[in-house]
């Protein structure tokens, strides 16, 4: 089972209304991205972290581990703003290397750090949603928002297939390993290639079987299923509105 998926099922916030969680996460994300306010992004990062760890009961180590994934990516992508090679030293710092300087301006540094914090704040909003809301409930919310049915059904089936194919891939890899399929780099590559091609064939077969099984239960082109999740609570809605207003206030008037 993919870790983030299993976390969403074990979170204490799982049974909170999915629409509330969706609106909370999305509006915070929009405020962070649209205003690009460092303070608002930091507030979102802290509040989401507190909700995920304290209220949701997700271990801190997992949250940090997941935040490190975009952090590494962000660090390398903003490197161009944080580090320049120039003959003229700029105002933030300048390390001489022969005739050149490893340097950056204060405005570039501010932009770079701002970009990292904003992106982290936005990612924390998505993590809040992903770590506390199972995929099926997110799809339900999208359905109620009148997203195209075809898109939602494809999402659900893809989600289900990810796990089936991961299971098959894991079984094939184990079988290959048991027969020295990863003896050296060359054989490992060969085994991997074979596994991918078999996986492709199996996925086609599985999808045919799955479609047959759905047809056998009177499938008429639309996935009619009962919704999971709970009702919205007035008090929670008030808290969300208040929080978003404060976040917007920080973004507009704060920093």
């Amino acid at each position: 089972m993919i870790l983030i998926d299993s976390l969403s099922y074990s979170s204490k916030l799982r049974y909170k209304n999915p629409e509330e969680k969706f609106v909370f996460a999305m509006s915070s994300l929009v405020i962070c991205v649209a205003t690009k306010s460092i303070l608002a992004a930091l507030t979102a990062l802290i509040i989401n972290g507190w909700l995920i760890i304290r209220k949701g009961g997700i271990p801190l180590s997992y949250y940090v581990k997941y935040l490190l994934v975009p952090l590494v990516f962000l660090f390398f992508s903003t490197l161009i703003l944080l580090v320049n090679i120039s003959k003229i030293p700029l105002d933030a710092y300048a390390i001489p290397i022969g005739e050149y300087y490893l340097t950056s301006s204060l405005s570039d540094m501010y932009r770079g750090i701002g970009l990292i914090v904003t992106a982290l704040g936005a990612v924390s909003c998505l993590y809040f949603l992903a770590m506390n809301t199972p995929m099926t409930e997110i799809c339900e919310v999208l359905k109620r928002m009148h997203c195209p049915t075809l898109f939602i059904e494809l999402m659900l089936l893809t989600y289900r297939f990810i796990f089936i194919l991961l299971e098959v891939a894991s079984a094939i890899l184990t079988a290959q390993k048991s027969r020295l399929g990863n003896r050296d780099f060359r054989t490992s590559l060969d085994s991997f290639g074979k596994m991918v091609s078999i996986l492709f064939i199996r996925s086609l077969k599985k999808s045919t079987h799955l479609y047959d099984a759905m047809e056998s239960r009177c499938y008429n082109g639309e996935l009619n299923v009962l919704r999971d999740g709970s009702r919205s609570v007035c008090k929670e809605i008030v808290w969300i509105v208040l929080y978003e207003m404060v976040l917007l206030g920080i973004a507009v008037f704060g920093f």
Partner: peptide, 21 residues
């Protein structure tokens, strides 16, 4: 093979599919 039959992500959704159809 149940994996050829079960398509939904949750148990409740899975069971409700046929009767709603």
């Amino acid at each position: 093979d149940p994996d050829n039959q079960l398509f939904s992500a949750s148990v409740k959704q899975e069971i409700s599919f046929g009767i709603l159809n």
